[in-house]
């Protein structure tokens, strides 16, 4: 089985988010970047599916050379080779087109990626990739099993869950529960240095949507403390002041 895993390079989850240039750019100075946590789940699942010589994993990233340490981390975790499309990933549409263009004649059986990235929180790339490649997609799966030529997945729906069977190839967004997380071991870290990382130049894509600026949430007002012995006071405040009950 040939698996393509798409990874984003995102600020570590503990990062305090600030912006520069009149709030038009994310301030990356001093920020530690990591493999997007949901993409790590995709990679962990890909490793489980291809273990013991049952296939190969290519990781693909659209980004600049500064993302190479993140890509090496994915190689150390267990991917066999990596591809970096050398461009600023400025929109989901741009990224999806780059990946689709790269993947279209490589006959991957499965394309996995996290259900969203924790920076822009789009869950756009999976669906766009599916559409561009003309194959099925599920934006967020909680379970994933290969059954012959098909893949059976579970996805969350409002108030429940749905079990689906899709023909391969398919694009699947992964969320928590899909796989046990894998972390690089010493052998992985050593071998990652010599695994191939191919740099590919981007194709031109028409821009349809772009971020023009950022805002940070307004700070909340001061907290009102209620004594633990007077819960009815909290109820009163929630009713008459906050008007939420």
């Amino acid at each position: 089985m040939k698996v393509l895993v798409c990874i984003s390079n995102v600020p570590d989850t503990t990062t305090k988010i600030t912006f520069t240039n009149d709030n038009t750019e994310f301030n990356a100075s001093g920020v530690q970047f990591i493999v997007n946590p949901y993409d790590e789940i995709a990679l962990s699942k890909a490793i489980a599916l291809t273990e013991a010589g049952k296939g190969s994993i290519t990781v693909i990233h659209v980004g600049e050379p500064s993302a190479d340490p993140t890509i090496r981390k994915a190689l150390a975790t267990g991917a066999d080779e990596a591809v970096r499309i050398n461009a600023v990933p400025h929109s989901a549409w741009f990224v999806a087109n780059q990946i689709a263009h790269y993947a279209k004649d490589k006959s991957y059986d499965l394309i996995l990626l996290g259900r969203e990235s924790i920076d822009y929180n789009g869950s756009q790339v999976a669906g766009m990739l599916g559409e561009l490649l003309g194959i099925p997609s599920v934006s967020a799966v909680k379970k994933l099993d290969i059954e012959g030529e098909r893949v059976v997945v579970e996805r969350e729906i409002e108030g429940g869950k749905e079990l689906l069977s899709l023909p391969l190839p398919a694009v699947l967004g992964t969320s928590e529960g899909v796989a046990e997380p894998r972390i690089p071991n010493m052998r992985g870290i050593m071998s990652a240095r010599t695994k191939p990382l191919t740099v590919v130049e981007p194709i031109a894509v028409e821009e349809l949507a772009h971020i023009v600026r950022y805002e940070t949430p307004a700070p909340r007002g001061a907290i009102t403390f209620v004594d633990a012995s007077e819960p009815e006071k909290l109820v009163e405040l929630l009713h008459s002041k906050a008007k939420v009950i």
């Binding site: 756009q124 669906g127 766009m128 559409e131 997609s137 934006s139 409002e158 349809l208």
Partner: peptide
């Protein structure tokens, strides 16, 4: 932007050549 909507919106946008603002 529901569970199902998150799967639909990008496909619809790609079909229509439309820009997508999700969330």
């Amino acid at each position: 932007n529901s569970f199902s909507g998150k799967g639909l919106a990008p496909r619809v946008a790609a079909k229509l050549g439309a820009g997508l603002a999700d969330g």
